[in-house]
Each structure stands twice: as C-alpha cells, then as structure tokens.
Write a protein that binds this DNA or RNA. Structure first.
Lengths: 161, 161
DNA sequence: CCCTCCGATGAAACAAACTTGCAAAACGGC
DNA sequence: GCCGTTTTGCAAGTTTGTTTCATCGGAGGG
C-alpha cells in the first residue's frame, strides 16, 4: 500500500543483487556473493534491508496459466467520464480490490486505466465487467483485448547504472 | 521457450502449493506442508516436478520501479499489416528478444499485440520505437500509453478449483 | 479373491543454505 | 589525525532443503 517514503540509496552492489534476484530469487546468497564480490552475509543483509525498505516488494513464483486448465488473460482499456482526483482515487481503490485484476495502471493517452485481468473463463470476465463497468456510472467506455498467446511475461525493472 | 507439451495433471495439493508460492515463494516447505497436510519432502517433490514441467516458469523478486531512480512503464498497442502465421511468429520473436519488453501478448480485438515496456527514461522508449516500429514495415500503427501510477502489480493465476 | 507392481508418501539422516555474533576494516566528519 | 559510524568477513549456530529408504494404497492381472 505505502510506497517507499524516502528514495533509498542503492549502490552498485544493490543493483547487481536486484538484477540477479529478479531473474531467479532462489539463487544462493553465496553464489550471489561470488557474482558481486561480497560475502554471503553481506548479501543477506542487503536483501533484508531492501525488503524492509520496500525495494523488493514480493518474492513470487510465476505460474504458466496454460498449466492451470482454463484461464484467460485479458487487457482492458478504461476511459472514465470525470477525472477529478477523488474519483480517480475511488477508481484505483475499486480496481485494486478485485483479485482478478492482476495489474492496474493509471495512464496518459487515449485511455485512463489499463487493466490486466486473469480469470478462469470468459464467463467470469463477463460477470466482472457487469459488476465493474456497467455498474459504475463514471465509466465512459472500455475496450477488451483477449490474449491468445502469452508470448513473454516478466516484471524485470532495469537496474543497471 | 517450450510450453507444456501435455497438459499436466494438477491435483488439489498442487493447486494449494501454487497459490502459496505465487504469494511468497520463500515460504518454507515445512510450513507449506502444514498448510496443505503433506510432509515437507512431498511438497518438495511436487515443486520440483511442477518446475520441470513448466508449470512454475520462474521464481522472481518483484522490485518497486520507484526505488530504482527513474523508470517508466509504458503500454503499447501494436497493429500489424499482414497477419500471416510466419509474420506473426517473426514479430513474437522480435518482441520477445527485447529486454525492455517485459510482457508481450498476442491478442484479439482492435490491436494485434500488447506490449508492456519498462525503460529508464522516455528517451530510451523513443529509441526503442525507432528501432522496433519505424524500422519494421509490417507495423501499421501503434498507440502508446504511459503509466503515471502503478496502482497494482502481480501475476497471480487463479488456481483454486 | 489375492497377488504383484507401481507410484506416492513420511520419518530420519544428511547436506546445504540462511542467520547471528563479533572483531576488524573502510568511510566521513571534525 | 582522531574518533564515531557503518559495513564487512569469518565462524558458529540454526533453519531449511534434499536424499534415502521402508511402507502404504490403489490398479491391473492371474
């Protein structure tokens, strides 16, 4: 919920460690240490600090949706009618509270929000649209894109200097 | 690279384990075992199997882009001119090989591809568009959305029965 | 109906990784 | 140049992951 309050200082060691952990966070600290020229405990302390500071937000296994029987990935562009600060915040809260909404971005351009949704079936998506868009009179328009192929998936932030 | 060749059978144990690992893959196997009523070795074997089968695609730390100084998240809708199988595959390969392209989906709707891009600065994005879109004569049109706020981020596939 | 085979399981032993305490080194401010 | 702060590496202790092995239970065949 809370972002990093003060910009944490990340040195070259931290960045290299993050680059490794983003690729594979099961890498042993000893191996990381060898890669960055630091001892295992030093690596461990830095990881602990970055986790506490919120630089590392989570440690997650990435699962192939195809493996889980039916699951559909959908993109939605949402355009709202009124873009007052209060209503934008309200929309953010509404979107963020939906478990099916995997990612929600507030964007500039021809839309106001972009949502990434994963649901077991198209029927679940239809129910979600009913509840979320048709039931919300601040939604002007929304456009749906259904993923046929998940060509590439990741969330690796560029950390190199 | 290779998808799951044959749909792996996932039982209730596997699904519960995946649900936990998607939330936090640093959870000890013993703790997972208690949660699903299985011994630690059984959990370990299932994780190993699902990793080999590709159900678990990666184990990654999720990093807050805000913590890494400047970084911009951008959505791009790409519409291609010719949608032959060969050209679609070519585009998939081209997009997947770009490190800045975090996510690439082949979609139905008013666009053909949706890209999620993370770059340090807008200048890097401009350079990418030059190389990727203007240099590709199969790209009919692309629309850019710049993320002002990363309201929610995750990739949790629904695994509950 | 019983028997065998096969896969999965749990207990225990083992190996590897993580974590902590502590003294020394590096860095900065004065 | 001295001193306080911070970070480091080493070593010991603890937790976690991994392997081994005997056992259990179900499916198929005699």
């Amino acid at each position: 919920m809370s972002r990093s309050v003060q910009p944490p200082q990340l040195d070259a060691f931290d960045r290299k460690i993050l680059a490794i952990l983003q690729r594979d966070n099961t890498t042993p600290q000893r191996t990381i240490g060898e890669a960055v020229n630091l001892s295992a405990p030093a690596v461990q302390r830095r990881i602990k600090r970055m986790t506490k500071e919120g630089v590392i937000q989570a440690n997650a296994a990435i699962v192939d949706p195809m493996a889980i029987g039916q699951s559909v990935t959908i993109f939605v562009e949402v355009e709202v009618i009124s873009e007052t600060a209060a209503q934008i915040e309200e929309a953010k809260r509404a979107f963020a509270s939906e478990p099916e909404i995997q990612q929600c971005y507030y964007v500039t351009g021809e839309a106001d929000f972009i949502l990434v949704i994963i649901v077991p079936t198209m029927g679940d998506y239809e129910a979600l649209t009913r509840r979320l868009f048709f039931g919300n009179n601040n939604v002007k328009r929304f456009r749906t894109f259904v993923a046929m192929d998940r060509v590439k998936v990741g969330l690796n932030i560029p950390v190199e200097a």
